[in-house]
Design a protein around this nucleic acid. Structure first.
Lengths: 125, 125
DNA sequence: TGTCATTGAATGACGCGTCATATAGATTTT
DNA sequence: AAAATCTATATGACGCGTCATTCAATGACA
């Protein structure tokens, strides 16, 4: 054991970890510094902005993100408290909630997205 | 804005995130279930096991891992409490500490490493 | 050699994510 | 249609990582 295959695997994994850490830290810091939101907050904003025309959100978000359901719920809490989006009850299923960006949310998202893409470009490949 | 380049970037990033999450969660759960240690604990064990012949550890670990210095300190705390390694003071620089696996630590590391490599093989590429 | 800056490590407060659970509303079963 | 089950979300306890700070030991420099 401790074959060269294993060593290569471990090295590959470490470099993935490293890349992931670098990128997500860079994103997180920049977004926090300039827009006062964390990376997860931005990603939820980004998802909501992406399909700002379809159905009951919370649920869908859970499917489009690796975050757990409760994490999403808490991120949305913060975004709502920050006045960036609203939860609105859903007529056809009163358990569900629609999420909608506020004007402030849309504005912040647009600005932050520019930064986000730029940092991705810098950090990926 | 919202160029196709940007969309591609974002997709690339999401797939990296996804891969990272899947792999690290799988590792974390398996290691915790079978050996009662988390992924970070294993990685420190792995690093210590790797160069079990050289100098003052804590410091070096900080350089070989994306974890912060204080995170490393706390992981080592847990490993020490679990009886898997020891901190030993360093003759030539009394601020530094040597880390050494205990017999139990070595044993657990060997078993866990097999699992770890197997899961990496499953999840990468 | 006495000051001043630097370095290795530990610690406490804090934020966030996870798990398990709770709750209310939907759906199915009989 | 009542009972049982399932589904969408929220919540609280808890663990862990980060930041800022602290402390002791080292090194530099006058």
């Amino acid at each position: 054991m401790a074959s060269t295959t294993d060593r290569l695997l471990v090295e590959q994994w470490r470099s993935i970890q490293d890349a992931y850490f670098r990128t997500s830290c860079a994103l997180d810091r920049a977004l926090d510094a300039k827009f006062d939101i964390g990376l997860n907050e931005f990603e939820i904003l980004d998802l909501v902005a992406e399909n700002s025309k379809s159905s009951c959100r919370m649920k869908e978000l859970g499917e489009r993100t690796p975050m757990s359901q409760s994490a999403v719920s808490k991120v949305v809490d913060r975004l709502e408290k920050a006045g960036l989006l609203t939860r609105q009850s859903c007529a056809d299923d009163r358990r569900s909630l629609y999420l909608e960006l506020t004007a402030a949310g849309r504005k912040l998202h647009q600005a932050a997205a520019v930064e986000h893409r730029a940092l991705l470009k810098e950090n990926l490949a």
